[in-house]
Simulated scan of single mutants.
Amino acid sequence: MERCVRVAILGAESSGKSTLAAALAERHGTVWVPEYLREFVETQGRVPVAADQYGIARMQLERENAAAAQAQQFLFCDTTPLMTAVYSRHYFHGVDAPLAALADDYHYGLTLVTAPDSPWVADGLQRESEAVRQLIYRYLLDELDARGIVYHVLRDSLEARLEQAAPLLQQALAAAPAISLN
């Protein structure tokens, strides 16, 4: 019997989610799931529209589920459908029913939120501004609070965030149910 914790890493644009996910995966000898939205923007050459949101969130989950087979104790997920729903509310003034259903199926053993306390960096098509970053961060915290999802905000440098995450990860692992590998 083994334990594996799915860790949601959420945050606004340019807040260090991908950097943190990769560093945590390396530190713990496991895998992480990159944000599919980045790939979507690169391959499509455009930002998503409202009709793309469900497909983006679904692909994120599919990749997460596929990566779970290689995970060792932790699976670090650089965003979740909940984050897609937060952005949909901001940019498209709502969330369609299929995306809402994906966001409602929140199945993570630990939720880490990256504070927007590093310099904002433009990143091609998918990052808007420091003002939007702060607004999305506030929307995210409000959404997590409204859903009663316990979360932990990680601040400062990458090293500080790794140190802040360490005891949270160990607590989540100790509380995780054992799973059979048969």
Score class of each variant (00 low, 15 high):
Gln70Asn: 13
Gln44Arg: 13
Arg58Gln: 11
Met59Leu: 12
Glu42Asp: 14
Ala50Pro: 07
Ile56Met: 02
Gly45Pro: 04
Gln44Ser: 10
Gln72Trp: 15
Ala66Thr: 05
Ala68Glu: 13
Arg58Gly: 02
Gln44Met: 13
Gln73Glu: 13
Ile56Phe: 04
Phe40Thr: 00
Leu61Ser: 04
Glu39Tyr: 05
Leu61Pro: 03
Ala68Tyr: 15
Val49Gln: 14
Ile56Cys: 03
Met59Cys: 10
Arg63Asp: 03
Tyr36Arg: 00
Ala69Tyr: 14
Ala50Trp: 09
Glu42Leu: 15
Gly45Lys: 08
Arg58Ser: 08
Val49Lys: 15
Gln70Leu: 13
Arg38His: 05
Val49Arg: 12
Arg58Asp: 11
Asp52Val: 01
Leu61Gly: 02
Val49Asn: 14
Gly55Thr: 06
Tyr54Met: 05
Ala51Leu: 12
Ala69Gln: 14
Leu37Tyr: 01
Glu42Ile: 12
Gly45Ser: 06
Arg46Tyr: 03
Thr43Asp: 08
Gln53Pro: 04
Pro48Asn: 09
Arg38Phe: 04
Tyr54Leu: 07
Ile56Trp: 03
Met59Val: 11
Ala68Arg: 15
Glu39Pro: 00
Tyr54Val: 05
Leu37Asn: 01
Glu39Gly: 11
Val47Ser: 15
Val41Ser: 06
Glu39Ala: 10
Phe40Trp: 01
Val49Ala: 15
Val47Phe: 13
Asp52Leu: 05
Arg63Cys: 05
Gly55Pro: 04
Ala66Gly: 05
Ala51His: 11
Arg38Leu: 06
Glu64Gly: 00
Phe74Trp: 11
Glu42Gly: 12
Leu75Ile: 11
Arg58His: 09
Arg46Thr: 09
Ala68Thr: 12
Arg38Val: 08
Ile56Asp: 00
Gln70Trp: 11
Gln72Val: 15
Asn65Ile: 13
Met59Trp: 08
Gln72Asp: 13
Glu64Arg: 04
Met59Asn: 10
Gly45His: 06
Ala51Ile: 05
Ala68Phe: 15
Leu75Cys: 08
Glu62Ala: 10
Val49Asp: 13
Tyr36Gly: 00
Arg38Asn: 06
Val47Met: 12
Ala67Glu: 01
Ala67Phe: 00
Arg63Tyr: 06
Ala50Glu: 14
Tyr36His: 02
Gln72Met: 12
Ala50Gly: 10
Asp52Pro: 07
Arg46Phe: 01
Glu39Met: 04
Arg38Thr: 09
Ala50Phe: 09
Arg38Asp: 03
Leu61Met: 08
Gln60Trp: 01
Pro48His: 08
Ala57Asp: 00
Met59Phe: 11
Tyr54Thr: 10
Val47Leu: 14
Ala69Pro: 07
Pro48Asp: 08
Ala50Asn: 09
Gln72Ile: 14
Gln53Ile: 02
Leu61His: 00
Asn65Phe: 14
Ala71Ser: 12
Glu62Tyr: 08
Phe40Leu: 05
Gln70Ile: 10
Ala57Trp: 03
Arg58Phe: 09
Glu62Lys: 10
Ala57Thr: 02
Arg38Cys: 09
Phe40Cys: 01
Leu37Gln: 01
Glu64Trp: 02
Ala50Gln: 11
Phe40Tyr: 09
Gln60Ile: 02
Pro48Val: 07
Tyr36Leu: 00
Asp52Trp: 01
Phe40Pro: 01
